[in-house]
């Protein structure tokens, strides 16, 4: 992991100066100071000085409240949502990707949970088992594609069934990739990374 990556720095920062916050929010430092002073952006002053400091959580809250994209702040770790009704498969994915600094992993066991989580978690990648107990993978793909704010979400379908017709249907419904179970772990990670524009890194 390279240390000169600015994004990585921000990703690890717990406390932001007004200058840093201005950079993250892509506004002027004066604007941050004004908001700080008016109380719209909470923080604290360094004891014994006038330097303003903003905690990470407060900054994120502020950014979201003002519809400022938090990508710059959080983009370092790619959010991955794995949907599968088989807990053993979910565990396998946790072991594969959970220890990987590049990914922030969430899991869901049903299509319903998957829908809810996509709203709040806004995953960069959805790894979707095609055969879900409640809804078909096709439907999940279509719902995601109907939401403009999820435009950037990549969908990888995973299934034991490799029927070309079904694969074609999934692609039409908005799936980006199809991976057959069982899969080669390295190959899977490579596919995810390439979909997210990440450099290939050996885990």
């Amino acid at each position: 992991m390279s240390t000169d990556n600015g994004q990585q720095t921000w990703a690890e920062k717990k406390i932001f100066t007004t200058g840093e916050a201005a950079e993250v929010c892509k506004v002027s430092q004066q604007t941050i100071i004004r908001c700080f002073d008016s109380g719209r952006l909470s923080g604290f002053r360094v004891p014994g000085s006038k330097f303003r400091r903003i905690p990470r959580d407060e900054l994120i809250r502020f950014m979201r409240a003002n519809n400022i994209p938090t990508d710059a702040l959080e983009g370092a770790r790619k959010r991955v949502l794995v949907v599968d009704d088989d807990e053993r498969i979910l565990e396998l994915f946790r072991d594969i990707m959970g220890g990987d600094e590049r990914f922030e992993l969430r899991t869901a066991a049903t299509g319903y949970d998957a829908g809810m989580l996509t709203e709040s978690f806004r995953p960069h990648v959805l790894i979707l088992d095609y055969m879900l107990p409640d809804v078909n993978g096709n439907v999940v793909c279509k719902r995601i594609r109907e939401k403009p704010e999820l435009e950037g979400t990549r969908i990888i379908c995973v299934s034991g069934v490799v029927n070309q017709d079904e694969v074609a249907a999934l692609r039409r419904a908005g799936a980006d990739e199809f991976i057959k179970k069982p899969f080669d772990v390295a190959a899977l990670l490579e596919r995810v990374a390439s979909l997210l524009g990440l450099e290939h890194t050996d885990v």
Partner: peptide, 21 residues
């Protein structure tokens, strides 16, 4: 085999994935 493909592939995925790890 349609049933088997789904039911058997999950355990096979676990076997395969775990042994790779």
């Amino acid at each position: 085999t349609a049933g088997a493909a789904h039911e058997m592939n999950n355990p096979l995925t676990v076997i395969s994935g775990r042994s790779q790890l």
